[in-house]
Design a protein around this nucleic acid. Structure first.
Lengths: 135, 135
DNA sequence: CATTAAAATGTTATAATATTACATAATGTT
DNA sequence: AACATTATGTAATATTATAACATTTTAATG
């Protein structure tokens, strides 16, 4: 087996899982990933979950917590992913990552009432997407 | 069976589940709730999940998505719960609801790059709580 | 290039979380 | 009382995730 895959340092399984999520262009669930990469030789949940864990750690993907789903990161220079925000349509369930520097600056510098600051956040907004609003 | 329970309009099972979550003072998982209310006559998951769903809907509790756990709402006048923020310690896993009007005003009025506004949000901050920081 | 340690993968089983479907009982309305 | 609605009970099963351990691949070193 070759050591490197594509331009990055993902392992074989990580690359397979990443490619599938990227290709799908919408949030994908772990077992959906599994069933779609069976043909690539990935046969069992731990293989998928390990890849997901690593991809999240290096910031290539995010987990959309409210949907137990995974999406590719939309930030150009995604590295460690400690600040995520999503727009989720309550009707069609479309999920879009929000990349907004004002918002991220505000939240990264946020201090709670006790003066506590945070290393990481995840924000999920819910509403109607353009399409569903105009129906 | 009496119609009303305590001062509010919760049903029997809803009140049992709510009391347990409130008593515990920390996030509780559904199956932990289940095992702790067996003595009260609640025997199966659907009874718990139904109560949780209703309690969330009326704003008495929130789900902490990243932990699949449930906490009582800390807002005094909690009604429909469309704006939640939590502080989660990465070490001891302590969860506190953040009640901060500046933050909620900011997020309630947030518009994304497309001008879209949202009806609801959930924000989870991660960091070290006071105790864990000072260790 | 043989040896070895570390990382990645493969595999089975099972744990933890959540829902479906349908039956029964309690309650509210007329 | 009759009926509709809401709440509850119950069994089964679906979905999401991890534990544990074996094997293979890769990287580093002498």
């Amino acid at each position: 087996m070759t050591k490197m895959h594509k331009e990055n340092n993902l392992t074989k399984n990580e690359q397979i899982v990443f490619d599938l999520i990227e290709k799908s262009r919408e949030p994908v669930k772990a077992y959906s990933i599994l069933s779609n990469v069976k043909k690539k030789g990935i046969k069992a949940p731990p293989q998928v979950y390990r890849a997901l864990e690593k991809l999240i750690k290096v910031g290539k993907i995010h987990k959309v917590e409210s949907k137990n789903s995974f999406v590719v990161c939309k930030n150009t220079n995604c590295e460690v992913s400690n600040a995520t925000a999503f727009s989720i349509c309550q009707v069609c369930e479309k999920v879009t990552e929000i990349v907004n520097s004002k918002l991220s600056k505000y939240l990264k510098s946020f201090q709670d009432n006790t003066g506590m600051r945070y290393k990481k956040y995840n924000l999920e907004f819910f509403g109607l997407c353009q399409k569903c609003k105009s129906k």
